[in-house]
Amino acid sequence: MTSQTTTETTSNTRGHVPPVMAARELGVYYGDFHAVSGVNLDFNRHEVTALIGPSGCGKSTVLRSLNRMNDLIPKARVEGEVTYHGQDIYQPKIDPIEVRRRIGMVFQKPNPFPKSIFDNVAYGPRVTKMKVDSMNDLVEQSLRRAALWDEVKDNLKGSAFGLSGGQQQRLCIARAIATSPDVILLDEPCSSLDPIATAAIEDLMTDLKQEYTQIIVTHNMQQAARISDTTAFFTAGVDEESGKRIGRLVEYNDTSSIFNNPAEKSTEDYVSGRFG
């Protein structure tokens, strides 16, 4: 049932452009714990994809496997395929550092480095040894694009820790943009922010659609409905073979279909607030 739905939506991929990224039968283990299995997703160019679902359904795990952040967790193991422009990023010859340079990430809690605002934004271009004509211009551009420039332009040498939570998160987005990635992964980027800061981030994500493919994990269904083009709904169910809880993808479709006309009963229950 589940796999049918996903195969259907996969073949439904909008447009004729091949997806930027795709997951095929993706599963992730932490030691013996099978966190999520059988995920098939396509991420279209310059769209926002939202991954939603109750806690423990594996949506963050899936997100973190898209740029090999799970490599940093001892005992994490990935099965299936994650392709980026057709290349499986889990092939042995692939360098995870190169992957992460193209697929940036913004985290749940703002995590600016203990450096100045300027150095935070310049960090990525510096470590990746990007050829930059003027670092000043690049920093300004990135901060402008993250809608933070006007607030910090007079204080670029100041510590990033002096900023508010919302500003810090926009700084983290500016930092991710500065390396000119192709895809930006956002792991509940607004969960520690107030509604005003959240609105600023959401506006920003909508603007960034022109240039970037974005994949966001969110607990906030209104947020998913507001900003995403496609939505994937995950849930945790009991695996028939092992009898253990395991995350799985229930349904993946256009956001409007997921919210207004879901194919699965559990999706409808979740988006209408009946569980989760």
């Binding site: 740029n67 992460r100 480095f113 991710a176």
Partner: peptide, 22 residues
């Protein structure tokens, strides 16, 4: 904090860069 390391890895840092620069 781990989050700082993850932020640095997320920007394509090598281990040595994470260690020395962050």
């Amino acid at each position: 904090p781990r989050s700082l390391r993850e932020g640095a890895y997320g920007l394509g840092s090598t281990r040595m860069q994470v260690a020395t620069k962050v």
